[in-house]
Each structure stands twice: as structure tokens, then as C-alpha cells.
Design a protein around this nucleic acid. Sequence first.
DNA 1: TCTACAATTTAGGCATGGCTCAACTTCCGC
DNA 2: GCGGAAGTTGAGCCATGCCTAAATTGTAGA
Lengths: 230, 230
Amino acid sequence: MAQLPPPEAHDLTAAVQDYAKAIYTLESRDGAASTTDLAALLEVRPASVSGMLRKLSALGLVEHERYRGVRLTERGRRVALEVIRHHRLVELFLVESLGMTWDEVHAEAEVLEHALSEELEELIAEKLGNPTVDPHGDPIPSRELKLAETEAPALAELEPGEAATFVRISDAEPAMLRFLGERGIVPGARLELVERQPFDGPLFVRACGDVHVLGATLARAMHVQREGKR
Amino acid sequence: MAQLPPPEAHDLTAAVQDYAKAIYTLESRDGAASTTDLAALLEVRPASVSGMLRKLSALGLVEHERYRGVRLTERGRRVALEVIRHHRLVELFLVESLGMTWDEVHAEAEVLEHALSEELEELIAEKLGNPTVDPHGDPIPSRELKLAETEAPALAELEPGEAATFVRISDAEPAMLRFLGERGIVPGARLELVERQPFDGPLFVRACGDVHVLGATLARAMHVQREGKR
DNA sequence: TCTACAATTTAGGCATGGCTCAACTTCCGC
DNA sequence: GCGGAAGTTGAGCCATGCCTAAATTGTAGA
Ligand SMILES: [Mn+2]
Ligand SMILES: [Mn+2]
Ligand SMILES: [Mn+2]
Ligand SMILES: [Mn+2]
């Protein structure tokens, strides 16, 4: 197969890289990225997104059907995955090699992802043994930019009595991460839903020997793998 | 003593940080920094420097006597030292913890020095055991931004028969570094000047058991500490 | 099928940041 | 005191990325 030209995420501005990342996120959630959703995610006005999409299109990173959504081209997807790889490798590195806590690394990685050279990326990946998951359970794209997307139900979807393994949580909410971290609840932990209050009420979850009360929002942010499934 | 407000190198642009660093360099070499010298060092036109100095002055980083040179204020000095600390810590970290070679780290550090948070700086310094010298023998400013400036004669100043320890070399010339590295000549190495050719000719230097022929330019870039001195 | 409204795009601007050239001013050694 | 070097100023350019307001378009539902 013909080798694509390198993504060259390097000489794209940080803003362009962030748009690519955001489009990738929405695309894998909804199949496409709308202007409005992008605006919300990036915290800018829709008009700004329209303008930027024009640029991304000129750069060959997206296919833009006017008034319909936008989709990444192969090149665009590679840029997004390159940045995501940087982000997650950096997060893991900060935790594993420098002892930073998992609630601090996201902010740090948000900056460093744009400053990392390919050489440094490779050295970090090597040092970590080419890891496949970051500290929050998010998969790390491989060197060849293949990403193993996995489906994992939210903790909130479990029925009382069910047991599961905590596998993943968004890295963007330091407070949540700190709350869980303080209780020893990190990816890999075994959870058991003891009881749930109705009307979007809290869940009672056994973890690390104790029963914890977790709010509904938290329970929707935490993703699990049901016991006995692979 | 009254504590100065933090330098906040963070929210200064990379360009401003680079100017501060450049001014610091020239100031410790010449006692002050001239517009022309800055222009040469930063590879921009003198007019651009004048403009930028205006901004640095407004930021309270320099004292600018029109048509005379410029000098860093205490605040400016702290910004410069902050960036230099970042730069040198990153260089050492890349070599020590990630196995990067000493000729590659400068370019990498030139970017990362501006992306490093204070928290990360501290973690790296800790991990390295609060080092005082970078891979090229340049001193690393302390956490309190004290810098131990040391005088070290150039290798070129030695007389035949003299022995010395190689202590320092500019990090900005990858080719020189590679040349020396290949021969095992790194800071700490013991050197002995065997002979020197006249008219700015090459030096014959015993190092690591072998006699090497080193060009005059190289011999001026390498700094040493004469034997028996401390 | 039409319409109202939501989504999207355009037009026109603004701000920041940093650089250039050309012309002018100041300094300083002779 | 003069002339050339050094430094400054003015005017402007270009890149980035954001905004508001006004137009356009798509589409769900009457
Ligand atoms: Mn980013
Ligand atoms: Mn993460
Ligand atoms: Mn720099
Ligand atoms: Mn160095």
C-alpha cells in the first residue's frame, strides 16, 4: 500500500491541531462533527468554527460539505491521532516517570502535546514499553496511528448486584479524578453495584472493600467492563 | 528580605522570554546588551530589537537608556534565569532519563523551555537530584534562581604540556558535539595539550588514551579547568 | 407544499504579536 | 565640529484567530 505523506502535525498551529482533535472526538461519537458542536466543545462562536473549517479544508485535513457537517480526511485523521498519541503518552509519562497525579496531567499534556517532537515521542513510548492505555484508561494510538476503540458502558448502566471492572474515565475533570483517587478507585479497580437510588440518585458501589456513594454524574462519567466479559 | 513577585515567565510570550535570555547572555559577557548585538544573536533586524525593547521596558523587564544599551531589571533577570533553568534542566533530563544524545537536546529544549510549568520543572529537578550542571557543562540556576557563574579558560589558551579537565562547551553546535562525543570527549574528561601548530593551527590533545587533532575553532569553544585548580 | 426556525456561513472587523524597510536622530572618535 | 556607526521611529505588512451582525440554507412539521 502506498505510504501516505507524514502528517506533519509539527508545522500546524496548536489551534489547527486542537480542531483536528475535536473533530476526531465528535466524529467517533456522532459519525460527523457539526459546526455548533465544535463551537461548544472548543468554546468559541460558530462563526469562528466556520472560518477555521475553511482553513482546515484548504489544508486538506477535512472534507467540508457546506451546511452539512465536516469529516476528517485520511490526512486529518492522522493529524488528530498524532496529537492524541502525544497527549496520552505525555500523561502516562508524567504519572509513571515523574510521579505527577492523574488529575494534574491533563492540563500539562494539553500544552506539551503541541511541543513534542517525533523523536521525543518515540523515546517516551519506548521508555514506557509502548503502552496502550493512558492513566485514565483511554487507549493510546500506536506508532502507526492505529487506535483500538473500545465500547464500555457507563457505571450508571449497571444493575444492582452486577460486578464490573473500572476501565475508563474522562481526563478533563480534575475534581472527579481527585475524588476517586483519594478513595483508591482507579482504572483496574473491581466495582460492585450494591444499590441505586431512583430519580437519578446516587449509586452505592463496593470498591476496595468499602461501599462508596457516587453521584449520578460521576457514575455516568465512569466506564466499566462487565464481569466475565472480555 | 522582601520577596519579589514571581517572575511569571509563564504568561510572557516565547519571543519575550527569548529576548530576556539573549540579554542575559550578552550582559554577562559584555556587562550590557547593545541593540546590534541582540539583533545578531536573535537573527532579526536592529529595528525589530528596538521595538521589542520598548515592550520589555513596558513590562518592567529591562532598563533602557535610549541610545545606550539595555540592562535587565531584577524582574527581567529572574525571567531570564527561569528560562535558562528550564532549558538546562530539560537538556539534562532528556539525556539522563530518556537517553537522547547531547547534540540533539538543545533544539528540543529550545522549544520545551517555553512549555514547561513550574510544577513540572520541580518534578524534573527532583528526579535528577537537583543537578547543578547540564550535559554541556553549563551551570543550572538553582530553584531560587541563583546561578554559579564560573570562569573557565578555553582549551586554546593552554600551553603545550599543560593538563586540564574539560568542563564546558556551547550547546548550540550539534556538529561539534557529535565530533567530540564520538571520541568520548565529554565534560569531565582529562585533557593534555601535547602540541599546538602555529598560526591558529590545530592542537594535538591527549584524551581518553589517544591523541586527537582538534581545530582552532573547536579549541576555542571548549572550556577547561587547569589541573590542580579548584 | 410551505413555512418558521435552527444551523450555518459570510462579511467586515478587531486584537495581538512580531517582523521589515526607510528615514531620521544621536553618539562618539577623530 | 564632522562623519559614519549605532540606534530609534514611523508606517506598514503578514499571520492567527477571534468576534458580531447579517445573510443564507436546510429541514421538521403544520
Ligand atoms: Mn491543545
Ligand atoms: Mn487521558
Ligand atoms: Mn526559545
Ligand atoms: Mn546546554
